[in-house]
Design a binder for these strands. Structure first.
Lengths: 190, 190
DNA sequence: CCTAAATGTTCACGGCGTCTACATCTGCTA
DNA sequence: TAGCAGATGTAGACGCCGTGAACATTTAGG
């Protein structure tokens, strides 16, 4: 076992992914992550200035996976793609609640411009652009539509994870999710 | 100064309301709340079994205030009332972000039945029922509509507080909130 | 080869939740 | 009215946590 680890920065993020996948945000601590990697707690501080920074790095890794899951559906017209993107977002949140919590509650307020660069948002934007081209969405309504759609799917995920929908069975959750997504899409094109 | 406080249980909740109003969930700790009241940390354990229980009590107090803010608007037809209720929810979240965080992220998954009893939910339900009576909403769509609406306003609040909309100016936030609320309402009646 | 930078460790501090044992007060009952 | 039992508050301790300062080891470059 060498004194130097080799690539501790990414090893810490990998351990953080494992831990937060099961235990959510609270399980993602400096001491537990370094313990998992087999290194002293303060070794983390050579790569991240504090816990928040480590969590941000883990959050970025999670957002990349979310984007991978969301960009897989690219068939049909704009509205169909928008529906798929929205449901994928909710599916990811319900399938990986720990990761979802780290990605969105890891205390990292990003700017709208930075959000627009994120692949997950790009998929949403592409579907909306397609709708505009097809004449299914007024160009003047496009900008607002993105936030309305994001708000609905994000809020639904929250209700299903930490809110009153946590107790309903999974298939009912999916049905309600589809209803919510269909509602915003219908409302946005009106 | 008497040895016994008199009504420590409510005093702890009041202190918790003060603390969380400014510092959010993280500021709501056993040690700080008891310090604020002027009592030893372990005195709290005579009234609440642990920190989570104290946070739930504070959460309940906050939800009561949210309900008070939401039930104030009762004019117009069902759709107008629904719009008002939704915007009030978002206004509350933006005006009191610390309280909003405690109320909804204090780790207390409530059942759908319990949620239906909450006054805040009653206001939403009443507006939807009015729409059904007016023929503006199909009775079969009523149940799903409640969750779609809640998801949208809750998600928007989240985006505006901890997400990419945190950086946009307040009046733009309000405009986007109105657009999102109008979108779900339009989608729900379609 | 030798030195400077990068990387990892050790020790320490204060804050946190919470357990156990103890102190004090209050109300009921004999 | 005296005293006892339960309710309520305190003291001290333990093991977590993040993180700062000082020190050790390894690696890279002249």
């Amino acid at each position: 076992m060498a004194y130097h680890h080799g690539d501790l920065a990414v090893a810490l993020v990998d351990a953080g992914l494992e831990l937060s996948r099961e235990g959510g945000l609270d399980a993602l601590t400096i001491r537990e992550v370094t313990r998992r990697v087999g290194v002293s707690p303060n070794a983390a501080y050579r790569h991240y200035p504090n816990l928040a920074a480590l969590r941000e790095a883990v959050s970025d890794a999670i957002l990349a996976r979310l984007a991978g899951a969301m960009t897989s559906g690219e068939a049909g017209d704009g509205a169909a793609r928008l529906r798929t993107v929205g449901l994928m977002y909710i599916d990811f949140a319900l399938a990986e609640p720990g990761w979802f919590a780290v990605a969105f509650f890891g205390s990292r307020p990003i700017t709208p411009e930075a959000a627009a660069q994120a692949p997950a948002f790009r998929a949403l934007a592409a579907a909306l652009d397609a709708m505009v081209e097809e004449g299914a969405l007024a160009p003047s309504a496009r900008a607002d539509a993105a936030w309305s759609c994001w708000a609905t799917v994000h809020g639904f995920a929250e209700l299903a994870l930490h809110g009153p929908l946590a107790a309903v069975p999974a298939e009912e959750q999916r049905r309600l999710a589809a209803a919510a997504v269909d509602a915003v899409i219908a409302g946005v094109r009106a």
